[in-house]
Design a protein around this nucleic acid. Sequence first.
DNA 1: ACCTGAACACCGTTCAAGT
DNA 2: ACCTGAACACCGTTCAAGT
Lengths: 194, 194
Amino acid sequence: MRADARKNRDHLLAVAGAAIAEQGVDASMRDIARRADVGLATLLRHYPTREALLEALLRASFDELTVKAGELETSSSPADALVSWLRDCVTWTTEYRGVTELMAAAIEDTESALHTSCVTLRAAGARLLSRAQEAGAARTDMDGTDLFALVAALAWLGDQPSLAPRADHLFGFVASALLTDAAITGSGETPRQG
Amino acid sequence: MRADARKNRDHLLAVAGAAIAEQGVDASMRDIARRADVGLATLLRHYPTREALLEALLRASFDELTVKAGELETSSSPADALVSWLRDCVTWTTEYRGVTELMAAAIEDTESALHTSCVTLRAAGARLLSRAQEAGAARTDMDGTDLFALVAALAWLGDQPSLAPRADHLFGFVASALLTDAAITGSGETPRQG
DNA sequence: ACCTGAACACCGTTCAAGT
DNA sequence: ACCTGAACACCGTTCAAGT
């Protein structure tokens, strides 16, 4: 790639990041190009679709979350690892309004530029869930796809101005429903009789 | 209203219902007018906004759900009434893809044509929740707004092709988390000591 | 090798002009 | 009283022509 092209590309990504942080993932591509003082066609040659642009923009965050999941597997109790990773995921998505819907579409669209990242993320969550289930800390009637859906739904709530104030509370509701009583009362105690 | 205008209006609503059932609430207004063999400006004079059109389209369903809530209050146990009404709400929203997002926006926008209907719906849910809470059948850390948000989130899941297959399962997950153990093991037993 | 203006087919909004 | 064509300011896609 030529030096001027590389510079254009980096500049575009920075401008796109700002625009999308402000206006959400539906920010106009034309507007992003305008802000970057570049023709719309130039933006589209670097990033042929909105998803390709987002993939470049979110790659670092995706990687971080995946690495974090691996770290939590060794550093925290199964229940704590699961819940704190879920919280990280939900918190992260609130940075880019509307990204959840795109991710839900991408996870079953193998053509999407976001597909692989989403599948990897789901797998990371599934591992943490399995670990918690094997420890008797999480319900056994859930799998990685259920978990992905729950995170997506909670993130979606955070995107809706009228519902966002309850997003934290409902995260707690969902998280505690996901865990078993044994995990909630603490791993040191014996589960109480039902 | 003149007879020809009335006829136009009814015809527009029927056509809009079909288009929106097919394509979701984002169906092009221009396309709806085209299908109805009417100028776009005519559609917009009858229904000045997308929300006004949907309000006319959904009014009957809104009323039904509100009436249903009242009936369930006398015909069913507090827990059953709450859960079966929630299921009705979620099932209903799946008929019109995207309606949940519009409703979430409308409930805090007093200018929206859908505002009153959404507020009424939330109040009906809040009554069923209170009744269940007073009977010791539902968690007491939830209110009508939380309930509205949960229904919205579950309905949103049903709108996403990749997540829809889990929507029923996750409805059960949320519903059972909403109820107390006492309500789940049956209303004939005394709540256990916590 | 890289960039871009311009044409295209859409969208919802608005209003002057028609019946 | 009711309807509508047309102008407007947008959108993303595509490609021939320029540097």
